[in-house]
Amino acid sequence: TEEYEYTDEQQAREAAREWREKGYTVTIEEHNGRWRVKTG
């Protein structure tokens, strides 16, 4: 599992979409105004 943090929701969603296209399972969670994208 890798985790990436973004301050911008749009960036987080874009990144998540790219990971999904590569076949990863992706979770996005908002935490204190930051967006965490977890792949695994």
Rank of each mutant, 00 (worst) to 15 (best):
T1S: 13
T1G: 13
T1Q: 14
T1R: 10
T1N: 13
E2P: 10
E2T: 13
E2H: 15
E3I: 15
E3Y: 15
E3G: 11
E3R: 07
Y4A: 07
Y4L: 09
Y4D: 05
E5Y: 15
E5A: 06
E5L: 11
Y6V: 02
Y6A: 02
Y6M: 02
Y6W: 05
Y6G: 03
T7Y: 12
T7L: 14
D8I: 05
D8S: 13
D8H: 06
E9R: 05
E9S: 04
E9L: 12
Q10A: 14
Q10L: 13
Q10I: 11
Q11N: 07
Q11R: 09
Q11V: 10
A12M: 03
A12F: 01
R13I: 14
R13Q: 12
R13P: 00
R13L: 14
E14Y: 03
E14A: 12
E14L: 06
E14R: 11
A15V: 08
A15Y: 03
A16E: 06
A16I: 04
A16S: 04
R17I: 09
E18I: 14
E18V: 11
W19P: 01
W19T: 02
R20W: 13
R20Y: 12
R20V: 13
R20M: 14
E21A: 06
E21V: 04
K22R: 09
G23W: 02
G23F: 02
G23Y: 02
Y24H: 07
Y24I: 08
Y24F: 12
Y24K: 05
Y24Q: 04
T25H: 14
T25G: 06
T25R: 09
V26C: 07
V26T: 06
V26S: 03
V26P: 04
T27C: 09
T27L: 09
T27G: 04
I28R: 00
I28P: 00
I28H: 01
I28M: 07
E29W: 09
E30L: 11
E30I: 09
E30W: 11
E30Q: 09
H31D: 10
H31R: 10
N32I: 02
N32L: 06
G33Q: 03
W35Y: 06
R36K: 14
R36I: 15
V37F: 02
V37E: 00
K38D: 04
G40Y: 12
G40P: 05
G40F: 14
